[in-house]
Amino acid sequence: MTIDWVLILEKILLISGVLVISLVVAMYSTWGERKVAAIMQDRLGPNRAGWIGLLQPLADGGKLFFKEEIIPGTSNRFLFILGPSLAMMVACMTSAVIPWGDTLIIAGHTVSLQIADINIGMLYIFGVVSLGVYGIMLGGWASNNKYSLLASVRAASQIISYELAMGLSLIALVMLTGTLSVKEIVEQQRHGFWNVVYQPLGFILFLICSFAECNRSPFDLPEAENELNGGYHLEYSSMKLGFYLFAEYINMFISSAVMASLYFGGYSFPYMDSLGLDHNLLTILGTVVLFGKTICFIFFFMWVRWTIPRFRYDQLMRLGWNMMIPLALANMLLTGAAILWKQGH
């Protein structure tokens, strides 16, 4: 068995690049969130550290690093540390199957801008999403605090409930595209219409579910500070708290990229093949376009957070089970019927 060292080096570089970009995007999402909030509330937002407050995330990160670290005496120490670590790790895992761009040809060697083009990419995304709840559950339980426990139980039931509708809306997309590989889904959209044209209801359901999976407002019940004193990370301080908050922003970035790839063409853009540009240039342009789409979605997440108030918990559950799942099932049925009709049965 020979080991292709060039491939391994290439993948290590790609993985590091994607991780660094995720972290930087997450960091600047915190800045973006404050700026968006400020604009929506007619304020200025952070403007002291650096030009228009651009150094604010660095200042915040430094502050979190140097704060005193407290582990409650009554907590389960191992699980208390495992919680935020898991949250962070799971948040970074999904990026492996997202095609960040087409291929680059460097000195006759084709480099794919996707870490792993596995033929079950969609299921991989779904699997990682279903693991996301462990970080919150373990952290909340290990804190040995009733508010943290309540918040983590809330988070778990919310995420399980919305995972169902999310999976059902993805099944309709899989039926339509006939593949589970994210790269192939993007390539199909490159040569046809974006999937959102065929799956408008599926996209809306997926969007709502990803709000719930990311614990973003209006579904941020696990950290409802006026009921739970802060939520599942109540007992956390210093960088462990930072990890929880950071994982939320990474999740937001990754699910924005997933939505852009699955429903909005990923790295492809209209008329990209008729521009007559060089292959490498086109790839880089495609990556920039993907990031543009992703940033639009991140902005949408923030826009909703500063516009819509939080749900009550029973409303959240009713929406999930009585609205989302039946709608997702209906969408699946409609898609199936349309496919059969098109095939002429």
Partner: peptide, 26 residues
């Protein structure tokens, strides 16, 4: 058997064990 592997993770680690943990914590 990649499909089996990922479905195993989704069903057992992602769903059933979350419910187990849920009950034990409650």
């Amino acid at each position: 058997a990649q499909f089996l592997a990922v479905v195993h993770i989704i069903v057992y680690a992602g769903a059933i064990m979350v419910l187990f943990l849920f009950v034990i914590m409650l």
